[in-house]
Simulated scan of single mutants.
Amino acid sequence: MPNNITLEQKAYEEIKKFIIQGKYSPGTYITEASLVKDLNMSRTPIRRALVKLESSGLVKHFKNQGSMVQNIQITLIDIVNFFECRLFLGIGSIEKAKRKMLDFPINEMYECTQLLKNAVADDDHDLYYLEANRYHNLILQTSQNDLLMETIGALQNKFEIIASKYYSYRRSSVENHIKQYEELTKFFEEKEYDQALKLYNEIMKEKIQSLF
């Protein structure tokens, strides 16, 4: 996580990670008191994190009982639809950058690709999935559209709980994806937007096809 992450965001990410990993399974009640112990953190950031988790649909608060982890049912078609949404939004973000000559966060993108390489070297599927998502969000972030980021963030929080079971992690395919991300970042750096659009389309269509 970035060094400047807030305690609230850290609490949110940790609780979400425990939900994804199954430590907090659907139907489990988690309380501020139990989370203070699990996270070694004060109540205030935990309370705020739980509010954010509830808004994402991951937990539901019940008075005097705590927050219950929700059982989210998502189909393969739902995952495909999510990837298609990301594709359309990504194209829009790149086209906006082309019109307005906006700069992409190149340093962060290269940092992502390096972390993706580290994930492959360490066979760390969770880190790979996290950084791949971050890379795509950096593309969308360039649109400078807060509503777009809020929408994709809420969808991503909902989907990532079970998306990994559909997520293809074949070493040959992920290594090729990293090379594509590096090439795409180079196009962004050189403001070769048409080439970037073409490659982005190829990347996303390959990801969708890999689900079947």
Rank of each mutant, 00 (worst) to 15 (best):
N145E: 11
Q195Y: 04
C112W: 01
S93T: 07
G57K: 09
A119N: 07
S210W: 00
E95W: 09
G57Q: 04
T75C: 02
I203G: 03
V69N: 07
H177I: 04
A11E: 15
E182R: 00
Q144T: 04
M68A: 15
N137M: 13
N40M: 06
A196V: 06
F159P: 00
K37N: 11
A154R: 08
I178P: 04
A97H: 02
E13C: 14
A132K: 14
Y167C: 01
F62C: 00
L39D: 13
A163H: 02
E54L: 08
K165H: 02
T28L: 08
M101Y: 09
R134M: 05
L184R: 11
A163V: 01
I161W: 00
D194I: 01
Y200M: 14
F104A: 07
F83V: 03
Q114D: 02
R86S: 15
I15P: 11
D123S: 13
P26T: 07
I79N: 12
L35Q: 11
C112E: 04
Q156I: 00
R43Y: 10
H125N: 13
M41D: 06
K37E: 11
N176Y: 05
H61P: 00
Q180H: 07
K17R: 14
H125Y: 09
V80N: 06
A196D: 04
A97G: 09
V51L: 08
N4T: 14
E202S: 08
K96A: 12
E32K: 13
D38C: 10
K17L: 10
V80C: 02
S173E: 15
Q144R: 08
S42K: 12
K165N: 03
E131I: 13
A154W: 03
G27S: 15
V51P: 03
R43N: 10
H136L: 09
N201W: 07
D124A: 03
I139W: 14
I77Y: 05
Q114L: 09
N157M: 14
L7A: 12
G66R: 05
S173A: 09
E13I: 10
K158C: 01
Q141I: 07
E150P: 06
Y128Q: 03
K63N: 13
V120F: 00
I91C: 04
A49Q: 08
Q209V: 05
T28E: 12
N201Q: 15
Y169G: 00
F18I: 14
S34L: 14
E175S: 06
D38H: 12
E190Y: 01
D146F: 13
N118F: 01
S25E: 04
P105C: 07
I77R: 13
K191W: 01
K10N: 03
L140Y: 12
I203L: 09
E160H: 05
E183Y: 02
D124T: 00
T28H: 09
A119C: 07
F83Q: 07
R48Q: 11
T31G: 13
S42C: 13
L35C: 11
T151V: 13
L147I: 06
L35P: 11
F104D: 04
M101S: 08
C85D: 08
K16H: 10
D78M: 08
M68S: 11
I74R: 10
F104T: 02
I203Y: 14
E182S: 00
G153D: 07
A97P: 01
